[in-house]
Design a protein around this nucleic acid. Structure first.
Lengths: 353, 353
DNA sequence: TTGAAAGCGCTAACAA
DNA sequence: TTGTTAGCGCTTTCAA
């Protein structure tokens, strides 16, 4: 079990682990390094007895193959980078989980970075991952344009955009139709009688926020002839619970007082609900609330949160699939895999009056 | 911007990126590779004009340093492995976030693996990370014993246990006192008049589950003289929403019918709440419910969930801190950083009768 | 069936 | 101030 170096005197401080290389293994097994490499990579071409001897040596020395050397020699890194906007958001961790489940079975290990909407952090992650020679990256880009990904592009690093459309000559992508989702949510409010709506939205530098807003506007136009509706947009700095909570004061100060608030995601909605509860505002009687993402806990909130469901896990799996194709298939063509959002109507938007 | 190779004919297919090495950079800048390496690593020792020329060449070739080669040469991997039980559980992602925020600023990128309580998956991750020569690993071990980590130990890979105690001669660790947490939750139920309690617990192979149970028993013993209480344990396969939901049938079939259910974590509690709601059982009037972890949404559930708070983010930061010390400080001593749980009493356990 | 040796991209002596 | 070169651990011809 303990590492051994042959030679006149063992200069090894027992407390300090001396990295074991195939040379050490070779020495112990009395073979050449080439043979050790062979039993590791093409065991069939080496004689049974030698193979066993080498395997024993691997065991006794505690040898662990050095991936860097393997890669340097031309091997693959077995590594994929994943860059998301926010690890605290279950939507993204579900995507991660989906991707991981698919990629782990192919022998990949994932590097994960959370950018929190920071271009700079994104750039750092992407660069670090490139330096590590990841075989591919799955990313929810921060910026509207894709210039931060141009390096990946020119260097030919297989890249799949998560929850973000790209044109076919750029990248593969998995998306959910956010325009449609925003439209669904807004239309639902209009149809249930709300004419004064606040739309609590994140920074429009975030594509999801832009698209959902566009969907809202589409819904407004669609009902414009039939009835008069007004949507006021309230912009917050980030899609977090805290920001939702902080938006409540501004919502309550509005005049005329809106009858419904639509949030760009569930975390915001959760914050809004908390803020409203703190102010004694009843939902949905005083104010209806709808969210976006349909996070698992939404249906258990008080009141249960109306939300737009996105198949996060499936997005992750699909992204992994696209990446694998790009990595392996020489005839790979970029594709967009698009999912449809689904409105889940619950008590938070259902006016009992 | 496009890659160039010097030589009589550019044999580069423009569609295919040819990896750029420092040799390419050197050629373009008309210097030696050593000089390129110098401007990259010790820019101060090279003449201004040469440096600029090299920097330009780096830019124009799109050179990205190959970490494997750097590491092979003796450099550090700037990589830390994180292995958690369940990425879907916000408790773990909060820890991850805490660790990441600390480690990213030190130039590390994190590899993340989710074991889902599988020893096998854990072993795979740990091995992969060792092969990648991570500088350290943060891990919530699956098994009760730590044999799966013995390799890390003997190979001297700095390792910090997350949410899991270790003795000082083994590893550093960050923990929350789960026995105490379990005790707090159970005592609270007893004190509010519940004498028939179900404890929905996960597999006791999971240490958290064992400890929380122990806490429950401690609370039972403490009140035993004053009053008679009965705690029945219901074991589920995993700490997930679905498992909680599925446990409800068994709970409702119990006789005598319990008056309170204590769950080993909030995900289970969420599932239980959903299940109870589906059966028309009122909480807390018919049945009180308490959870564990105090996930962000708990206070907004209907009814708001009583739970035991654990400072997940702080755990992550503390773990990163311990790891950094072990990596850098030659006089490092293993330590346990222990946090105290806190009971958050809310409506789900507050019997209005 | 095995061994010897070149070389992957990089850094750090050492020499010039 | 810059260039030359050995060598990190591994895989893979090529020879024996």
């Amino acid at each position: 079990m303990s590492p051994k170096r042959s030679g006149p005197t063992p200069k090894v401080d027992p407390k300090t682990w001396v990295p074991v290389t195939i040379r050490d293994v070779a020495k112990v097994a009395h073979v050449s390094t080439g043979t050790v490499s062979n039993v590791l990579n093409r065991p069939d071409i080496v004689a049974e007895s030698t193979r066993q001897r080498v395997l024993d040596a691997v065991e006794s020395t505690g040898f662990i193959r050095n991936t860097q050397a393997y890669q340097l020699r031309g091997g693959r890194s077995h590594t994929v980078g994943v860059v998301v906007l926010d690890v605290s958001n279950p939507f993204f961790t579900e995507m991660f989980r989906g991707a991981e489940s698919r990629l782990q079975s192919e022998g990949y290990v994932l590097m994960l970075g959370s950018t929190d909407d920071s271009i700079e952090r994104e750039a750092n992650f992407v660069r670090a991952m490139e330096e590590h020679r990841v075989e591919g990256v799955l990313i929810t880009p921060v910026a509207a344009d894709l210039v931060s990904l141009s390096g990946l592009k020119t260097r030919g690093v297989p890249t799949v955009l998560l929850d973000r459309k790209a044109t076919a000559d750029e990248f593969c992508s998995v998306t959910v139709d956010d325009v449609r989702g925003g439209e669904l949510a807004a239309r639902h409010l209009f149809e249930t009688g709300h004419a004064e709506v606040v739309f609590v939205n994140g920074p429009t530098t975030i594509r999801q926020c832009r698209d959902r807003r566009q969907g809202v506007r589409k819904a407004v136009r669609a009902v414009a002839k039939a009835k008069k509706v007004e949507v006021t947009e309230l912009s917050v700095g980030a899609l977090t619970v805290r920001n939702g909570e902080e938006a409540v004061d501004r919502i309550l100060a509005m005049s005329p007082r809106p009858t419904a608030v639509m949030c760009a995601n569930d975390l915001l909605a959760l914050g809004v609900l908390r803020g409203l509860a703190a102010h004694g505002v009843r939902v949905p009687d005083d104010l209806a609330v709808v969210g976006y993402d349909d996070l698992i806990f939404g249906s258990m909130l008080s009141p249960a949160l109306t939300s737009v469901r996105q198949p996060a896990l499936e997005l992750g799996v699909a992204a992994a699939e696209l990446l694998l194709d790009e990595v392996r298939n020489p005839d790979h063509r970029h594709r967009e895999v698009r999912f449809e959002p689904e409105l889940m109507v619950r008590a938070s938007s259902f006016k009992s009056s």
